[in-house]
Write a protein that binds this DNA or RNA. Structure first.
Lengths: 154, 154
DNA sequence: TTCCTTGCAAAATATTTGCACACCT
DNA sequence: AGGTGTGCAAATATTTTGCAAGGAA
């Protein structure tokens, strides 16, 4: 599984004359072995635990790169740090999106009405790409609200 | 138009024993008079130009409050700062979402397939609210990609 | 060998907090 | 009077950058 991810990497990286190094490999592996939404620091801590000579800077740089290549989706849930997910994660098969509490920042993954959604997303990607000349690499859908616990606070 | 917004504010604020003060009023007015996606600082600069005694801290606090009340949608386009839009903006009638270049961070508003989307969003809101007990206040849909100009760079 | 990658330390930015004062009702 | 709202300055936290050394192809 981790193997599959790294193999895939090789091809995409080669095309751009980028090198598949151990830190890069590790970062992708960490993301491919969780169902959580890791921040750069959380990725760093896990990579660093295995290879203490890998620095936080590299994690940031690699995540940026992976995002630009469409391998990773970067998003923000309002807690002040960016969070990263592998677009194709064997640990999280199928499509999903996020429900975020704007008060306590808790994130819930959901996958209701995915079929309908995937169809719409597909149409939109095609149309936007055609109309604006973008190479679409990903999308983010979030619902925001106040969770049960936080409603009581108000 | 700005009047309508502030009137509306009064009601929602009153329910929560919050006060409609001049800084709060101004902040909503600034957001209601632009079609851009302002950052906290950009809001601050405009409010501050008219009332130099209003501080950046208040802008942050007010925007947080407005978001939690569902009056404003806060989102991040990957340029390192949060950006805010009035959910109901007379200057931007109708529904729209965003297409973001992950390389240069340019943002394009789009409103293709809105009818279909609104229908889906509605269903999802109902379902998520029921299933997870959230009071849904808003949503964010973004497409990410690389724009024509940035594609050439690669 | 070439030039892409990296780590470290330092810098730049964005956002939050503490606290005393001001203000609305 | 009483609690809400605010500004300022300082503190936090996150992310970026410069540069010399390391490492993949």
């Amino acid at each position: 599984m981790a193997k599959a991810a790294s193999t895939d990497l090789r091809g995409k990286f080669h095309k751009r004359q980028l090198r598949v190094t151990r830190p890069r490999q590790m970062i992708v592996d960490v993301l491919g072995n969780t169902t959580e939404h890791f921040s750069a620091e959380e990725v760093y801590l896990r990579v660093h635990a295995k290879y203490p000579n890998v620095g936080l800077t590299t994690v940031y740089r690699t995540l940026d790169l992976l995002e630009e290549m469409g391998i990773v989706v970067k998003q923000n849930f309002g807690d002040g740090r960016s969070r990263y997910e592998l677009k194709e994660n064997p640990k999280k098969p199928g499509h999903h999106h996020h429900l975020v509490c704007t008060a306590c920042k808790r994130v819930i993954d959901y996958n209701d009405f995915v079929d309908e959604e995937v169809k719409l997303i597909g149409k939109l990607e095609k149309e936007l790409s055609r109309k604006h000349g973008f190479r679409i690499t990903g999308h983010v859908i979030q619902f925001h609200g106040v969770c049960t616990a936080c409603k009581k606070t108000v």
